[in-house]
Design a binder for these strands. Sequence first.
RNA 1: GAUUCGCUAGCUCAGCAGGUAGAGCAUCGCCCUUUUAAGGCGGGGGUCCUGGGUUCGAAUCCCAGGCGGAUCACCA
Length: 510
Amino acid sequence: MPKFGTMTSGLSEQETIRRNSLNELIKLGINPYPPHTFPVNVRASEIKKNFSTDPSLYQDVSIAGRIMSRRIMGAASFVELQDESGRIQLYIKRDEICPGEDKTLYNVVFKKLLDIGDLIGISGYVFITQMGEITIHVRALELLSKSLRPLPIVKEKDDAVFDAFSDPELRYRQRYVDLIVNPEIRDVFVKRTRLINSMRQYLNSRSYLEVETPILQPLYGGAAARPFKTQHNALDMTLYLRIANELYLKRLIVGGYEGVYEFSKDFRNEGMDRFHNPEFTQMELYVAYKDYEWMMDLVEEMVEKISLDLHGTTQVQVGENLIDFRRPWKRFTMYEVIHHFTGTDIADLTEEELVQRAQQLGVPIDKTMGKGKIIDQIFGEKCEPFLIQPTFITDYPVEMSPLAKKHRCKPGLVERFEAICNGKELCNAFSELNDPIDQRERFEAQLELGRRGDTESMVLDEDFLRALEFGMPPTAGLGIGIDRLTMIMTNSPSIQDVLFFPQMRPEKRG
RNA sequence: GAUUCGCUAGCUCAGCAGGUAGAGCAUCGCCCUUUUAAGGCGGGGGUCCUGGGUUCGAAUCCCAGGCGGAUCACCA
């Protein structure tokens, strides 16, 4: 466990030595945390990429970064310097950085008082060593920040990694260390940002308006989930952290915007596992005068573009599976896919028959479940895990979709789809319910489910109903899980791998 | 929440017929002016997650707890 406290007595040997080095530096008149800028004019990866084709460009480079390893050979040394772009080797020669009689900078400062983990700035010229490594020959060296804790040392040879910093608990709790020593982790988060940028660019190119809606809500709505509850002192009222932003975005459609979207952190007070974090990110989009068929086309196009932007191809390797986002994706109705995987046509079954059938299939159900939830359960158990390539599942039972419009020709169903990919839901979308009378009835059915013991049933939102009563255009709505999509696009097996700081229990000493 | 595995030096790990702690890298000292998991020689560094119990004696066995991973349940 990490050691806290600032008293020397509580420090490890290596921490004490570094603090002593810090004091020695100060005695030599060197500020270990200098305030001035350092004039970086190039990045490590750029030198490595371009030096061979045009060496003349790199005769006067100035670069800053972290010391990741040192190989000291008497009066000359090699250092691996890491900046945001990658690593480059430095060659440091005593008589080069200490041209006069005083060799303190090399013999004492560099060799004794600097450590792996310290941030330095150097200037020099680039050359290639006898071993063929592109290297910066250092003319001047300056300490930019002293590191007081020893860094885990990860070594590599011939693509084999030695002593990897791999303890998941330490990696998540000290993500900053993870990012320093495991550069491929940094890349996952770069991809996450590029994914969001790609999606935003796509939506902006269609002139949809990016908006912000409340995270603290007096009523939670827009999804079936248990909320986090908090207290506003001045108003003396309970507020909930949003579980979705659907109802607020629809209010904006009522208000006259014809396309709105929001990247939103949502919060659900439920179990945690490798697919679930209490706070997670969704992108919700609402477009007026469109329907769910239209939205399927949009999702296909957008996700295909994202894959191309990230990987230059529609194909992505995810674990054992090669997933191809190339349009068009397969489309099945919920009943079709259940029939396909279970051999049962559930379209005309009564609730009792459905219960019986679920039990025959070994699908666990309980008394609080309505018909819709049982169908969803069968789908979740018997179909969803086996849908690997991106697939649209359409036309859900009305009971499990209280915010979706009734199907234009199939009674008992709604105009809803989910995209399933790698056995998991990627997005959820409907032709939005804009009939205020129907919406009120659906809320009331949800209240009834709540009375039967369903802790995730929706609550009735009078203000939202009032908005609908003013008239909402026919609208297509979409919610897409950004964490899940990032997991797929970066081949990450756990949501913790795509969140910088996944939720953890507090660490305790002893 | 349930089951299961894990927690030993800064990091990765070994040690578990119970006898009082080890390796590699890191670190410290010395040598070394093109090395790259640099190398050579020498030295330090540990509430063995915590608390109880069994025992002459516990990192090791037993019980309880903490934190984490995986799987399951709820869910995105």
